[in-house]
């Protein structure tokens, strides 16, 4: 009697300079499996379909409930988190590849440092006077809060950049996630005091003007963040600023 199994085809790479290669794995099926539990099963007995004793597959993960963004990879051709990829809901064999827009560290693990550098560049923070007790924060309409909350759910996973035709390994395009963060902070009453500084950072090379309007980002976002709205809004804000700068010169 043949036992039900899960088949996986995984693109592997031993280090950033070595060539990628494919390996196939077959593990016993268990209910409630997701891609993470498959990778964990491989860790517990690392062997491919025809070779014993291979190195376990390396991937990045932490929370396993789609709030940390770590376990992003390409699953059956689509970029998404491995934790929410339930085996029962995806096609077999399950094909896993690392994200292609970021340097591979090893196997399915990539280096998304460029995303964090972008956050630094666009000054994605609210400038406060310090952590001493200065009383209540600014009054804010709940509708504004709701818009900000949606934007603030961005977990820097990189799905939007993986999907974006404009974002490549060799250019300096900032990408939808960073633009959306500019909108998030410019919407905050205190953050708005430094709105121009953020806009300046997205007006140069690699900035908002380089967006090709493919709208792939919004489709790929696992948190349904209205990224194209953010891009439109930041385009408008930068155009206004250009005009203002021109008139007031």
């Amino acid at each position: 009697m043949s036992q039900k199994t899960i088949k996986l085809k995984i693109k592997r790479q031993d280090n950033p300079r070595s060539k990628p290669y494919w390996q196939e794995f077959e593990i016993p099926y268990q209910p409630l499996s997701n891609v993470i539990s498959c990778l964990q099963d491989i860790q517990k007995s690392p062997a491919t379909a025809n070779e014993l004793g291979v190195n376990p597959v390396i991937w990045d993960c932490s929370c396993l409930e789609e709030v940390c963004g770590s376990c992003t990879m390409i699953i059956n051709g689509r970029v998404r988190q491995a934790c929410t990829a339930l085996v029962d809901q995806i096609e077999s064999p399950i094909v896993l590849e690392p994200m292609s827009k970021f340097p591979v560290v090893r196997d399915l693990m990539v280096d998304r440092n460029r995303m964090f550098r972008a956050l630094k560049k666009v000054k994605a923070w609210v400038d406060i006077d310090g952590s001493q007790d200065l009383g209540e924060g600014p009054i804010m309409a709940d509708s504004v809060r709701a818009t900000r909350y949606t934007l603030s759910e961005c977990m820097t996973c990189g799905c939007c950049l993986e999907a974006c035709p404009q974002y490549t390994k060799d250019n300096s395009f900032l990408g939808a996630a960073a633009f959306s963060q500019v909108r998030l902070f410019n919407l905050h009453p205190t953050g708005a005091m430094h709105a121009d500084e953020r806009l300046e950072e997205v007006m140069g090379k690699g900035g908002i003007a380089d967006c090709g309007n493919a709208q792939a980002c919004v489709e790929a976002c696992p948190k349904n963040i209205p990224l194209t709205d953010s891009i439109a809004d930041i385009s408008r804000q930068t155009s206004l600023k250009l005009l203002k700068d021109l008139l007031l010169k």
Binding site: V126, L134, G137, I139, M140, A141, D142, R148, F185, H188
Partner: peptide, 16 residues
Amino acid sequence: HLMDRMGVAFNRTPEG
């Protein structure tokens, strides 16, 4: 209040 000043999107009342 500090976290609110830092921009945490805390849910608000009708009065803000």
